[in-house]
Computed example of a mutant assay.
Amino acid sequence: MAVPLQLHTPPSAGFDEPFGMLHACHGRVERTLELLLRLGTHLAEYGCDAQARDAAADVQRYFDVAAPLHHGDEELHVFPVLRAAGKTALADTLHAEHEQMEQLWADIRADLQAVQARQMPDDRALTDARQRWADFSALYTSHIRMEEAQAYPEAQARLGLAERAAMGCDMAQRRGARYPDAVMPKGAGGR
Rank of each mutant, 00 (worst) to 15 (best):
H95A: 11
V65K: 01
D92P: 00
Q116P: 10
T127I: 04
P153V: 14
T93F: 01
K87F: 07
R145D: 00
L104K: 03
A56L: 09
D92H: 10
T93C: 11
R83C: 11
P80D: 09
L94W: 02
E45D: 10
D135A: 15
M167T: 14
Q51K: 10
Y46L: 06
D123G: 05
G72E: 13
R61D: 01
A52S: 04
A165N: 11
A89Q: 11
R158H: 02
T127M: 14
L104N: 05
A129R: 09
L159C: 11
G72P: 05
R145A: 14
L82P: 02
E163R: 01
T88R: 15
H70P: 11
Q51V: 06
Q119R: 11
H42I: 04
K87C: 09
G72V: 07
G47P: 13
P121D: 03
R130C: 09
D58C: 03
P153W: 15
Q131A: 13
A117L: 14
D73E: 04
L76N: 11
Q156P: 00
I144Q: 02
Q60L: 14
H143P: 05
A162F: 03
D122S: 03
L139P: 09
D58G: 01
D54G: 07
Q119K: 14
C48S: 11
E154P: 08
V59G: 03
A138Y: 15
D122H: 10
T127N: 13
V65I: 11
D54E: 11
R124F: 00
Y62H: 13
Q60G: 00
L126D: 02
H143T: 12
D73A: 04
F79W: 12
A44I: 02
D58T: 01
R61K: 14
L43N: 00
F79R: 07
D92N: 07
Y140T: 11
I144E: 06
Y140N: 03
A166V: 05
A165E: 05
P121W: 04
E97N: 03
A138N: 09
A134Y: 06
L159H: 05
A138E: 15
A114S: 09
Q119F: 05
L94K: 00
W133K: 01
R61L: 14
G86Y: 15
E45A: 15
Q131R: 07
E75N: 10
A155V: 06
D54A: 13
Y46N: 04
K87W: 04
L161S: 07
T93W: 01
A129T: 01
